[in-house]
Lab assay of single mutants.
Amino acid sequence: SEEWVEIALRLLELGREANINGTILNLHKEEIEELIRRLLKRI
């Protein structure tokens, strides 16, 4: 399964939302940290 691709796409999506909203992603901080942890486990 290409889970890391899904994770990377989700991170990009959150990054785009952050640019549009001008936020520092506090809302998504925990989700982002969890996604990155899952991503690093696969490398």
Rank of each mutant, 00 (worst) to 15 (best):
I36Q: 00
W4A: 02
S1C: 15
R10D: 03
K41L: 08
L35Y: 02
L14D: 01
R38Q: 10
L35F: 06
I43W: 10
L9A: 04
E30W: 04
A8L: 15
N19F: 15
G15M: 15
L39W: 03
V5Y: 10
E33P: 01
A8E: 03
I7Q: 01
I20L: 11
I20H: 06
E33D: 07
K29I: 14
R37G: 04
I24M: 05
W4L: 09
T23M: 07
E2T: 09
A18H: 08
T23I: 11
R38W: 13
I24A: 05
N26Y: 11
R38D: 06
A18C: 15
E31R: 02
G15L: 15
K41Q: 09
I24C: 15
T23S: 13
L14K: 01
E33H: 08
E6L: 12
G22N: 11
E33W: 14
R16N: 08
I24E: 08
E34S: 06
N26H: 10
E30H: 06
K41M: 10
R38H: 04
L27G: 12
R37L: 05
N19T: 13
T23V: 09
L9Q: 05
N19S: 15
E34K: 05
V5A: 05
G15A: 15
R38I: 09
G22Q: 08
E33Q: 08
H28V: 12
I7P: 00
G15H: 09
N26G: 08
L39H: 01
W4F: 09
R16A: 07
R10V: 11
E6K: 10
K29F: 15
H28M: 15
N19C: 14
E33A: 12
R42L: 15
T23H: 13
I32F: 08
W4K: 01
L11M: 05
I24H: 10
W4E: 01
I36E: 00
G22V: 12
K29N: 13
E30Y: 04
E2I: 14
I36D: 00
I43P: 03
E2H: 12
L39F: 06
L11A: 02
L39V: 10
G22F: 04
I43Q: 03
K29P: 14
L27V: 05
L9W: 07
E31N: 04
E13P: 01
G22S: 05
L9K: 04
G15W: 15
L12E: 04
L25D: 09
S1K: 11
L27T: 11
I20K: 10
R37W: 10
W4C: 10
K29S: 13
L11W: 06
L35R: 02
E13Y: 07
H28D: 12
R37D: 11
S1A: 09
G15N: 05
L25S: 14
K41T: 10
G15K: 02
R37N: 04
L25F: 03
E31C: 15
L25W: 04
R37E: 06
I20Y: 05
E3R: 13
I36K: 00
L9G: 03
L35D: 00
V5C: 15
I7M: 05
N19Y: 14
I7W: 06
E34Q: 07
A8Q: 03
I36A: 01
L27P: 09
G15P: 01
H28A: 11
E33R: 12
I43A: 05
E33L: 14
E6G: 06
V5Q: 05
I32D: 00
E13D: 05
I43H: 02
I7N: 00
K29E: 09
E6V: 12
E31K: 04
I20S: 08
L14R: 02
E33I: 13
E13K: 03
K29V: 15
E30T: 09
W4N: 00
S1F: 13
R42Y: 15
I7V: 05
G15C: 14
L14P: 01
E3I: 13
I20V: 07
E13W: 10
G15T: 07
A18P: 03
A8D: 01
I32W: 10
I24S: 11
E3V: 11
I20T: 08
E3W: 14
R10M: 10
E2Y: 13
K29G: 12
L25P: 11
I43K: 03
E34M: 07
K29H: 10
L14C: 14
L11H: 00
E3F: 15
L35C: 08
E33G: 04
L11N: 00
N21E: 05
S1T: 09
L27Q: 12
I24G: 06
I43G: 03
R37C: 11
E34H: 07
L12P: 00
I32N: 00
G15S: 07
I20A: 06
R10K: 10
E2G: 12
V5K: 04
G15F: 15
S1W: 15
R10W: 11
L14F: 05
I36H: 00
R38E: 10
L14I: 11
N26P: 09
L25R: 11
A18E: 03
I36T: 01
R38A: 12
A18Q: 04
E17D: 07
I43C: 06
R42I: 14
L11P: 00
I7F: 04
R16M: 08
R42D: 11
I32S: 00
E13I: 08
K41A: 12
R38K: 08
L35T: 01
L35V: 02
S1Q: 11
R16P: 04
A18N: 03
E13Q: 08
R42K: 14
L25A: 13
R16Q: 06
I7Y: 02
K41H: 14
A18Y: 03
I20W: 10
L39A: 04
E17H: 06
S1R: 07
K41W: 07
N21I: 15
T23K: 10
E6T: 08
V5R: 06
K41G: 07
K29L: 15
T23Q: 08
L35H: 01
E30G: 08
L39Q: 00
E34V: 06
L9H: 05
E6A: 06
L14H: 03
N26Q: 11
W4V: 09
T23W: 12
I7D: 02
S1V: 14
E31M: 05
E34I: 09
N26K: 02
L35E: 01
N26M: 07
I36P: 00
L27D: 13
E2A: 12
N19I: 15
L40G: 04
I24V: 02
E34T: 07
I7C: 15
E34D: 10
K29M: 15
L12W: 06
I7G: 02
G15E: 02
L12F: 05
L9M: 08
G22P: 14
I36R: 00
E30S: 09
G22L: 14
E3D: 11
I32A: 02
L27N: 10
H28I: 15
L11K: 00
R10H: 11
R38Y: 09
W4R: 02
R42G: 11
A18S: 05
S1I: 13
T23L: 14
W4D: 01
I24T: 02
E17S: 09
T23P: 10
E2F: 14
L27H: 13
E3Y: 09
G22H: 06
E6F: 12
R37M: 06
I7S: 04
E6H: 11
E17W: 09
L9E: 04
G15R: 02
E33T: 07
H28W: 15
L25N: 09
H28F: 15
L11Q: 00
R42M: 12
L35S: 01
L39S: 00
E30L: 07
A18V: 13
I43V: 04
I43S: 03
L12G: 01
E6I: 11
E34F: 04
K29R: 10
E3S: 15
N21Q: 07
I32G: 00
H28C: 11
R10L: 10
H28T: 14
E34Y: 08
E2R: 11
V5T: 04
L27W: 13
W4H: 01
I20E: 05
R16F: 14
L27K: 14
G22I: 14
R16L: 13
T23D: 11
G22A: 12
L12D: 01
E30V: 06
E31Q: 06
L35I: 05
L25T: 14
I32Y: 02
E34N: 14
L35A: 04
V5S: 02
L25H: 06
W4G: 02
K41Y: 08
I43F: 07
H28P: 09
G22W: 06
R42H: 13
R16V: 11
L25V: 10
E3P: 06
I24R: 04
L11Y: 03
L12C: 15
G22C: 04
L39R: 00
N21Y: 02
G22D: 12
E17N: 08
E33F: 13
L11G: 01
I32C: 13
I20F: 10
R10I: 12
E30Q: 08
R10G: 06
S1G: 09
I36N: 00
R10Y: 09
R38L: 08
E30R: 08
N21R: 07
V5E: 02
E2K: 13
H28G: 06
G15I: 15
G22K: 12
R42T: 13
E33S: 07
